[in-house]
Design a protein around this nucleic acid. Structure first.
Lengths: 197, 197
DNA sequence: CTCGATATGTCACTTGGTGACACTATAAGC
DNA sequence: GCTTATAGTGTCACCAAGTGACATATCGAG
């Protein structure tokens, strides 16, 4: 039980740290804010900050986690005979609906877009995520998908995700993310025919 | 004319620096190699290294430049009434054929894949590149493409590119990049119907 | 030969990030 | 109530990536 308790308080500290950090970033900018600033504002040392987040960039992604254990698991849980493109659509749609409500996402995305280092970090995380999704697609029971096609599917899905985010920001957060996602998944088709090249 | 000359020697120095750096990275790893190591091996100071490359990461992308002014220009140069997806395919295919021959690309890609920092930097560069391509698509005379669709097209194209690279690495550089690209562009279709959501 | 631009070296500094060690508070066991 | 293990924190020293300022060397044009 101590395990759970510790985890809970740890998460609380992380959340507070993230809160404080985002605030400072929004006001002063990412590069202009030092880790020591954040730590001090949160009442701790620089060293302690790094006990909660591995890098300065990661504090931004705390709330808006795009890595999503959940997504990977959900893919695997989908009916095995479902078209993989549809599986991706369903899972990602559910995920979009979740974060659609969340406040702060818009600010966070703007911050990321305005900060090259954060763009890099985001895509780095997403690269890991994609590999796992791609594996999940291939690993489905009875799946007859070659690695190249699996990558194609996964990458195309993130292509839609990125376009959704861009459009959503263009609309100042007014656009409907799930609707945009649906539109993207409809506009893009992925053929599964392997025998071709 | 001095302009050109300076540019030429500058490029030579950059190339040498890149050569040396890649060599060290290959042997010792990216993180284990310090900028001072590189500089010293190339007969100069750490400070001078940074006069040729803005960051340690960038030295890796010197040869394999994925930013490609050229690609953007080529897009704009394509017949205005051509299907944008086909334009992308043609331009990227030509580009793939160019680098297909190039040695060192495989090593470089492996290095990138093995180094999170480089993955981040690669995608960061590519993000900038994509925005410009997307703009180019919309800017074509007579083009009736909304921003969302333009992003969708561009992102889908990079989705193919990424899948090609992955597959190519999986095959230890034996696979035919242009052929893979064609296959990807054929497997993925992008609808241009705007009126939908 | 002199002048002016450009490349380079030197030095000092900031910042992200890490390892080592000491200290404190808390919770469990006696 | 006292002891003791343990997690969280502070402190300090350190490395490496960049950056700005300034001095110096080099080299081509006049």
């Amino acid at each position: 039980m101590e395990e759970g308790l510790r985890e809970r308080t740890r998460r609380a500290v992380r959340a507070e740290l993230a809160e404080v950090a985002i605030g400072l970033f929004a006001r002063r900018g990412f590069d202009e804010t030092t880790v020591e600033d954040i730590a001090q504002a949160a009442g701790m040392t620089k060293r302690s900050f790094f006990r909660y987040f591995p890098t300065k960039e990661d504090v931004v992604f705390d709330g808006v986690d795009l890595t999503g254990e959940k997504v990977v698991a959900d893919i695997a849980a989908r009916p095995a005979d479902e078209d993989p493109w549809d599986s991706l659509r369903h899972v990602l749609r559910a995920w979009q609906e979740e974060i659609h409500a969340s406040e702060r996402v818009l600010d966070t995305l703007r911050l990321i877009e305005a900060t090259p280092a954060l763009v890099g970090r985001l895509h780095q995380r997403r690269a890991e995520w994609r590999r796992r999704v791609s594996d999940a697609l291939q690993g489905r029971p009875g799946a007859d998908i070659d690695p190249y096609t699996a990558d194609l599917l996964t990458n195309a899905a993130t292509a839609v995700l990125d376009a959704v985010s861009s459009q959503w920001m263009r609309s100042d957060g007014h656009a409907n993310r799930p609707a945009l996602l649906d539109r993207g998944f409809t506009q893009i088709h992925v053929d599964l025919s392997t025998r071709q090249a």
